[in-house]
Amino acid sequence: MKMNMMKTSAAALAFVATVMVSGTSFAAGDTPRAPAQNWSFNKLFGSFEPAAAQRGFQVYKEVCSGCHSMSLLSYRHLSQLGFSEDEVKAIAASVEVTAGPNDEGEMFERPGIPADRFKAPFANVQAAAAANNGKAPPDLSLMTKARVGGADYVYGLLVGYEEAPSGVEVPEGGNYNKYFPGHVIAMGPPLSDESVEYTDGTKPTLSQHAKDVTTFMAWAAEPEMEARKRMGVKVLLFLLVLTGMLYAVKRKVWENLH
């Protein structure tokens, strides 16, 4: 009987393990997986590095936001990254947003306020597509959650531009990228060394820019992550103690049976 239990338990574990393996995502085609980077936020109890995320926001604002929207974010969310209330107000006020209609029924322009969503570079998807060879640049709010490989993929893509290997034809308007599925991507290399001038003395290399903006995007995709992990510790510790006590109760109750 004991032996049987062991066997069945082992089989159950194997079941769960297989479910887990088959539950993970399936990489597309022959494109190599972007190598794993050492992200502080991917660790079990890790968090976003605020300085990196702030620099990443600067990269987004000065480079990416020319083409890519982040429509799920509001300026007020930026206070989570350590920006002060005044800084957030100033960032929001730096863009003009269309508001209204006012009492006369007219739309009007006003400086942004913290409650506004990030201003999109194009009025609508059609305008974005028309300005970009017929394909609208994707919204970046959820990018690290919406791609197989997550932050590693985003970082890999940003630094993955290279000469096409001989024999690979890159069509007009396309660029060769090592980690983009199918390798041909419409977006030109968005970042290079010194794309952005950092104010905190960090060396403005391509990989630094890519790391920072990926950190920012990871935060944008999962702004709840730090709160989630902090709460998780408490919940699991509580459950551990509770389960331990329930086990003691069960033992005590069953004791007089055996």
Partner: peptide, 12 residues
């Protein structure tokens, strides 16, 4: 009691 203990494990 046995089911409650199982629920504790499962909830973890």
């Amino acid at each position: 009691t046995k089911d409650l203990f199982g629920m504790g494990l499962f909830m973890m």
